[in-house]
Amino acid sequence: MNWLMVIAGALVGAPLRYLTDRAVQARHDSALPWGTFTVNLAACAGLGLLTGAATAATVPSALHHFVGPGLCATLSTYSTFSYETVRLAGTGARFHAAVNAVAGVVAGLAAAFLGGELAGALFR
Protein backbone atom coordinates (compact mmCIF):
# COMPACT_ATOMS: atom_id res chain seq x y z
CA MET A 1 0.00 0.00 0.00
CA ASN A 2 2.80 2.40 0.92
CA TRP A 3 4.58 1.65 -2.35
CA LEU A 4 1.37 2.25 -4.32
CA MET A 5 0.90 5.63 -2.66
CA VAL A 6 4.51 6.61 -3.41
CA ILE A 7 3.95 5.62 -7.05
CA ALA A 8 0.67 7.56 -7.18
CA GLY A 9 2.38 10.64 -5.72
CA ALA A 10 5.26 10.36 -8.19
CA LEU A 11 2.79 10.06 -11.09
CA VAL A 12 1.51 13.52 -10.11
CA GLY A 13 4.77 15.08 -8.92
CA ALA A 14 7.02 14.47 -11.92
CA PRO A 15 4.66 15.81 -14.63
CA LEU A 16 3.71 18.71 -12.31
CA ARG A 17 7.41 19.62 -12.05
CA TYR A 18 7.79 19.49 -15.83
CA LEU A 19 4.67 21.60 -16.46
CA THR A 20 5.48 24.16 -13.75
CA ASP A 21 9.04 24.53 -15.02
CA ARG A 22 7.79 25.08 -18.59
CA ALA A 23 5.14 27.59 -17.46
CA VAL A 24 7.53 29.58 -15.25
CA GLN A 25 10.40 29.57 -17.75
CA ALA A 26 8.07 30.80 -20.52
CA ARG A 27 7.12 33.88 -18.47
CA HIS A 28 10.50 35.54 -18.03
CA ASP A 29 13.85 35.86 -19.74
CA SER A 30 16.01 35.92 -16.62
CA ALA A 31 19.25 33.96 -16.55
CA LEU A 32 18.20 32.29 -13.32
CA PRO A 33 16.26 28.99 -13.47
CA TRP A 34 13.12 30.16 -11.67
CA GLY A 35 11.15 27.07 -12.71
CA THR A 36 13.24 24.70 -10.60
CA PHE A 37 13.33 27.30 -7.80
CA THR A 38 9.50 27.40 -7.82
CA VAL A 39 8.90 23.64 -7.69
CA ASN A 40 11.54 23.13 -4.99
CA LEU A 41 10.07 25.94 -2.89
CA ALA A 42 6.53 24.55 -3.22
CA ALA A 43 7.67 21.01 -2.41
CA CYS A 44 9.66 22.15 0.65
CA ALA A 45 6.62 24.02 1.98
CA GLY A 46 4.37 21.03 1.27
CA LEU A 47 6.67 18.50 2.95
CA GLY A 48 7.23 20.94 5.85
CA LEU A 49 3.46 21.17 6.29
CA LEU A 50 3.04 17.38 6.14
CA THR A 51 5.76 16.59 8.66
CA GLY A 52 4.58 19.42 10.91
CA ALA A 53 1.04 18.03 10.79
CA ALA A 54 2.37 14.53 11.57
CA THR A 55 3.90 15.75 14.82
CA ALA A 56 0.70 17.50 15.92
CA ALA A 57 -1.95 15.12 14.64
CA THR A 58 -2.37 11.62 13.21
CA VAL A 59 -1.74 11.57 9.47
CA PRO A 60 -2.90 8.33 7.80
CA SER A 61 0.03 6.31 6.48
CA ALA A 62 -1.37 6.24 2.94
CA LEU A 63 -1.72 10.03 2.83
CA HIS A 64 1.74 10.45 4.34
CA HIS A 65 3.36 8.29 1.65
CA PHE A 66 1.37 9.91 -1.16
CA VAL A 67 2.31 13.47 -0.16
CA GLY A 68 5.81 12.87 1.30
CA PRO A 69 8.06 10.45 -0.61
CA GLY A 70 5.51 10.44 -3.46
CA LEU A 71 4.36 13.92 -4.42
CA CYS A 72 6.68 16.40 -2.66
CA ALA A 73 9.95 14.47 -3.00
CA THR A 74 9.29 13.83 -6.71
CA LEU A 75 8.06 17.38 -7.35
CA SER A 76 11.36 18.70 -6.01
CA THR A 77 14.70 17.90 -7.62
CA TYR A 78 18.33 18.15 -6.60
CA SER A 79 19.87 16.89 -9.84
CA THR A 80 18.34 19.64 -12.01
CA PHE A 81 19.19 22.23 -9.34
CA SER A 82 22.82 21.03 -9.45
CA TYR A 83 22.88 20.91 -13.25
CA GLU A 84 21.51 24.43 -13.66
CA THR A 85 23.93 25.81 -11.06
CA VAL A 86 26.99 24.18 -12.68
CA ARG A 87 25.78 25.26 -16.14
CA LEU A 88 25.50 28.89 -14.98
CA ALA A 89 29.05 28.72 -13.59
CA GLY A 90 30.28 27.06 -16.78
CA THR A 91 28.88 29.80 -19.01
CA GLY A 92 30.75 32.44 -17.00
CA ALA A 93 27.76 33.52 -14.91
CA ARG A 94 29.51 32.65 -11.65
CA PHE A 95 27.62 35.24 -9.64
CA HIS A 96 24.30 33.89 -10.90
CA ALA A 97 25.46 30.36 -10.09
CA ALA A 98 26.27 31.34 -6.51
CA VAL A 99 22.98 33.22 -6.15
CA ASN A 100 21.06 30.23 -7.49
CA ALA A 101 22.75 27.80 -5.09
CA VAL A 102 22.49 29.95 -1.96
CA ALA A 103 18.99 31.28 -2.69
CA GLY A 104 17.74 27.78 -3.47
CA VAL A 105 19.01 26.34 -0.19
CA VAL A 106 17.98 29.29 2.01
CA ALA A 107 14.52 29.63 0.44
CA GLY A 108 13.92 25.87 0.58
CA LEU A 109 14.87 25.76 4.25
CA ALA A 110 12.69 28.79 5.02
CA ALA A 111 9.75 27.18 3.19
CA ALA A 112 10.25 23.98 5.22
CA PHE A 113 10.13 26.01 8.45
CA LEU A 114 7.08 28.02 7.29
CA GLY A 115 5.24 24.85 6.31
CA GLY A 116 5.92 23.43 9.76
CA GLU A 117 4.75 26.64 11.46
CA LEU A 118 1.58 26.64 9.40
CA ALA A 119 0.90 23.03 10.36
CA GLY A 120 1.46 23.94 14.02
CA ALA A 121 -1.11 26.74 13.74
CA LEU A 122 -3.63 24.58 11.87
CA PHE A 123 -3.37 21.35 13.86
CA ARG A 124 -2.75 22.48 17.42
Binding site: A10, R17, C72
Partner: peptide, 27 residues
Protein backbone atom coordinates in the same frame (compact mmCIF):
# COMPACT_ATOMS: atom_id res chain seq x y z
CA UNK B 1 16.10 13.42 -21.93
CA UNK B 2 12.52 13.80 -20.53
CA UNK B 3 12.59 10.16 -19.42
CA UNK B 4 16.04 9.93 -17.83
CA UNK B 5 16.70 13.56 -16.87
CA UNK B 6 13.36 15.09 -15.90
CA UNK B 7 11.75 11.77 -14.98
CA UNK B 8 14.16 9.25 -13.43
CA UNK B 9 16.86 11.56 -12.04
CA UNK B 10 14.47 14.40 -11.22
CA UNK B 11 12.22 11.99 -9.33
CA UNK B 12 15.11 10.11 -7.69
CA UNK B 13 16.73 13.20 -6.20
CA UNK B 14 14.84 15.37 -3.74
CA UNK B 15 15.21 18.93 -2.54
CA UNK B 16 12.25 18.86 -0.16
CA UNK B 17 13.54 15.94 1.93
CA UNK B 18 16.92 17.69 2.07
CA UNK B 19 15.38 20.92 3.39
CA UNK B 20 12.95 19.27 5.82
CA UNK B 21 15.63 16.94 7.24
CA UNK B 22 17.82 19.99 7.85
CA UNK B 23 14.89 21.79 9.51
CA UNK B 24 14.32 18.78 11.78
CA UNK B 25 18.00 18.81 12.77
CA UNK B 26 17.72 22.52 13.66
CA UNK B 27 14.52 21.82 15.62
Amino acid sequence: RPFLGTGVLGGYTTFSTYAVDARDLFD
